[in-house]
Design a protein around this nucleic acid. Structure first.
Lengths: 234, 234
DNA sequence: TGTATTTTATTTGTCGACAAGAATTTCCGC
DNA sequence: GCGGAAATTCTTGTCGACAAATAAAATACA
């Protein structure tokens, strides 16, 4: 499934076995290589990564803690489903965290923070230019995570990153039907947000982040609606 | 250390071993039976609970995911420290979650929710009456968790409960010096919040929750300041 | 006596194995 | 042929053991 799996299977230092399998599983889940509902076979995984079941189970416990997998007692553990019925709670939390983290960044950012944020924005712009939807999703995540880091509230960054990851999963679903023609608008909006953070203009940062979040929510909802129509048409 | 440990050591169903040790450790950590910085000896725990190290390690991984313990690679795992230098980030997040969850509860509460909330409030009032500080802390947590549940946003309830737990740890530290004469004011404030939720008055709920949060933050800061003075006096 | 170095001891991370539950298949009565 | 009980296969949760990594102790040396 994952290339990294077969690659460095032999030489692995003691103590990083759990992190190894955790990273692989996490990536595969967020990239939908393992779609929601997929059962995760411990034995099979252990064979493929040529390691014991113990570190794999510990990685699964960690993933379960983050809500990425669900462990049915005495039954198989499966990749967590996306709760489409309650997506509004996701959008609500997402919007709030966009606002809060951007506000805090405008208050607390250092010069170094700005530099990091700009670097992420550049990666994002490049992804948009090259029409690489998947890279764009990842870059967008890193961009906003960098802003959250600049806000220096680990409680917010924790929840926000979790939400961004969940969003990555949702977007992956619809970016197959989306024709990779990515709106340049997001790049501009990001630039505006950076400007507000640099100017330490908290209110502007809040307003822009709020508008940006609304954009994204609207886009996702539109994609869902389009997908619904398509399914009915079939 | 914990009574429950020695109690039902023999008969334990398969599959609940991890939850068993998780609950014990969690309680001990939040009640400061295991103070911050305490090393957790896997072997010792295994002997005391008469079980293998495997389920204990999985419980520790889970606790590490919630930030309650810190695992130093190839070294012992210790109970996480309370970051007093950055308490303001805690207060900030706490206040926001108080507001958001109470707002949502005012929007989405059902009759059943109100009943649960009222029950928790009664327990809280009883704890205040009997001057039982420790019971009050726990009841307060349950009261606000019930409100958050009524808001029906798992992302918010997740973060909020984590914050409430961390607050429980912080309060425990200072309630030894606090003379158990608990302010009746909190009971009244809770009643006001309930009334706003019942009336579905979102703005009032927000305002009251905000004021309530400020109260609590102020009280904690006051306790810290008093403690500082006391330490200097000694 | 104090410091550097080797030796010992403790503790962690990982492994293979086994037994309890669940899922599946087989077998039997109708 | 079909529904249900018994047996089998599979998977999970737990265990004891071992080896790497670290901490502690003992020894050598200046």
């Amino acid at each position: 499934m994952n290339d990294k799996a077969t690659a460095s299977q032999a030489e692995r230092k003691r103590g990083e076995g759990v992190k190894f399998v955790y990273d692989i599983l996490r990536d595969d889940i967020l990239d939908l290589v393992l779609p929601p509902g997929s059962p995760i076979d411990e034995v099979q995984l252990a064979e493929r990564l040529s390691m014991s079941r113990t570190p794999i189970r510990e990685a699964l416990v960690r993933l379960a803690g983050e809500g990425l997998v669900t462990t049915l007692p005495n039954r198989s553990t499966v990749v967590s489903n996306i709760d489409f019925l309650n997506l509004h709670t996701f959008f609500d939390a997402m919007t709030l965290m966009y606002r809060v983290t951007t506000r805090l960044a405008a208050q607390a950012r250092t010069a170094a923070d700005l530099e990091t944020i700009r670097a992420r924005q550049q990666e994002f712009a490049r992804a948009v230019e090259t029409h690489d939807a998947l890279a764009m999703i990842a870059a967008n995540r890193d961009f906003h995570a960098a802003i959250a880091e600049a806000g220096r509230n680990p409680y917010y960054t924790g929840l926000f990153c979790r939400l961004l990851d969940e969003g990555r999963r949702i977007l992956r679903i619809y970016y197959s039907s989306f024709d990779d023609h990515l709106p340049h608008r997001y790049v501009v909006e990001h630039e505006d947000i950076i400007a507000a953070i640099e100017a330490r203009d908290v209110e502007a940062a809040d307003r822009l982040a709020s508008a940006h979040a609304d954009q994204i929510v609207r886009q996702i909802q539109e994609m869902i609606a389009r997908d619904r129509r398509q399914q009915i048409a079939l």
